[in-house]
Design a protein around this nucleic acid. Structure first.
Lengths: 329, 329
DNA sequence: ATGGGTCATGTTCACGTAAACATCGTGCGA
DNA sequence: TCGCACGATGTTTACGTGAACATGACCCAT
């Protein structure tokens, strides 16, 4: 910066003014500084700037990793939205839900320089004795209103309701559910809504099965379900588990959708090209991410924590894997 | 830091020594400082530290986003490997391969504080007039030896050879190929190796088709292939395109694998649970990421650029989607 | 005993930037 | 004509840390 100032024949403060687009600089001076910057290949030093301003223009993002489709899409969308707002994203992966791993991750994030933290899976915050750094804004991409942080998420309850109603409307007497892991807030909200929707419709509520989001766990659940008499419709809490259920059904000699209707959740890219293609729920990750980032930036720039909680409506995508139950149902 | 020093009754330099684990501190003093740090909730200021040391303990990671399975897995693995080495990862997504978007992304990355840059898809570097910041180490997770940066990747050529040989060994006269996009180095290396392997075996080399990694593009290619007489084996450059091909074949009344054998590449989680399950190639992203990070850190800490290029062997996973060709072949 | 070496600790300074304040010139109204 | 306000620019300073150097106590060999 000093070199640039010398070359342009001005003080370093004027260079700083040009870099930050302040108004009080004569056009001619500005041009001289800009061309000096170009010639010298000047790049402002983030560390020095952050040291002075206390801002890093960086968001921390904490998750269990990109293994699941939903996480990967969320992280991708948040990154892109943050970028549009002039922020970069610093990723931290928590390797396991042990107290130690979570603490390490948060330490790393605050030792690193971030202006705010996006928590992708809210159960990370359930870790005992987790003391968040006091003045760092937090926004959750999942979770529960009880958690005292702003939250933006797909309306999981609406999604599960759409699925359940779709199947009931097709004539199924009830709907079986393969839920996600018990500690996932998203899984819990889907399961609760499935349960409530069945109740409302006076349908029997069958025993719920749990998976871990993986196709393998869906397959295991499917093998169990295939032995249940009268089972004609399954709602799996994500597409991968739905796929596992499908395979188990096919292996058990059930036709889809003639004998068994199956619905997933997420609309992964593959779902439209399965045979049969999968009825599912599509989440709008881009809108969710956009809101997360704007909520974040509001907090960072105003210093206040809006208690806002926003839900983004998902969309039921009906494909080949659902139909009316077999006549003998 | 000053507060900690005051509370412990030492100079700030001594605090710095304790924080950085220097040897020249008496045990009793160290304890006093540590407890003061704990009481005051002291956290070192990254910006100030970076300003002095010129190091950020952060890697920049640049990609087109997490949409593809390979990218997501690579980013995930690199993040975790970097974390183990005490680094965090700053993600930048290039929204499109326009000169402007790529330049913006790189600007953001160097304006931000990173010690090195991991380029996930090497074609990003093909952008005209891209001037990398001169002294920032770069490691590619893909690409070509010609590119003058260290590179670590799965041995794409070996993977493609394994697939092609597998199909030829099953008795297929030749193998059709649905390649990835033309500007992808990985896709190109797979295609070249497929071509070379057919040549070696004196098999005819059918016209290659191109997709864009998506299941949709695989489906389009599949519809074309279904009309080709004598077509009994297809190697798709990734699993999603293979899935699209499968659907097109099924819709055209071909049975898999009885009429047509299909192989993918990547071993996405879903592949084992398709019906039929998909023969594919599994890449070891964790090993690749581990090497990328260690190569990166070598460069950062020694300041020299090893011209190393490392290939990690992938593994052929044979499942239900491949078999001998139909007798009338 | 005395000088040199070692160890714990303190003091000073620089890193690159932006905020706060200071200065200077210019134009305009009284 | 004079003073004042305002705009452009310069000067000084602080941000929190670690490197380099300085200090002082203590020990050991001569």
């Amino acid at each position: 910066m000093a070199d640039v100032a010398a070359m342009a024949g001005v003080s370093s403060q004027t260079v700083s003014r040009v870099v930050n687009n302040r108004s009080n600089v004569e056009e001619e001076t500005r041009q001289r500084v800009l061309s000096a910057m170009r010639v010298l290949g000047y790049r402002p030093n983030t560390a020095a700037r952050a040291l002075v301003t206390g801002q890093f223009r960086t968001l921390g993002l904490i998750s269990f990793g990109l293994g699941s489709f939903g996480n990967a899409r969320t992280v991708d969308a948040v990154t892109k939205a943050a970028q549009r707002a002039g922020y970069t994203v610093n990723m931290i992966a928590v390797e396991s839900q042990t107290e130690r791993a979570v603490h390490e991750a948060f330490d790393q994030l605050t030792v690193q320089a971030v202006d705010g933290i996006v928590v992708v899976e809210a159960q990370i915050l359930d870790t005992p004795a987790l003391r968040l750094p006091p003045d760092v804004p937090v926004v959750m991409a999942d979770g529960d209103v009880s958690l005292r942080h702003p939250m933006v998420d797909t309306d999981q309850a609406l999604g599960a309701r759409l699925v359940t109603r779709h199947l009931l409307d097709l004539g199924h007497k009830t709907v079986w559910h393969v839920a996600g892991p018990e500690d996932s807030y998203a899984a819990r909200r889907r399961a609760e809504s499935w349960h409530a929707t069945l109740k409302e419709a006076d349908a029997a509520v069958p025993q719920m099965l749990f998976g871990d989001w993986s196709a393998a766990s869906g397959y295991e659940a499917g093998r169990v379900l295939a032995r249940r008499p009268g089972m004609t419709a399954v709602f799996a809490a994500n597409d991968q588990m739905a796929l596992g259920v499908m395979r188990a059904m096919i292996q058990a000699g059930r036709r889809i959708p003639e004998d068994v209707s199956i619905v997933g959740f997420d609309d992964i890219d593959e779902s439209a090209y399965l045979s049969p293609s999968l009825t599912t729920v599509r989440q709008d990750f881009d809108v969710v991410a956009e809101r997360i980032v704007s909520l974040m930036i509001d907090q960072i720039e105003t210093g206040t924590a809006p208690a806002a909680t926003a839900f983004v409506a998902p969309q039921l995508i009906v494909r080949e894997s659902t139909s009316a139950p077999p006549p003998t149902g």
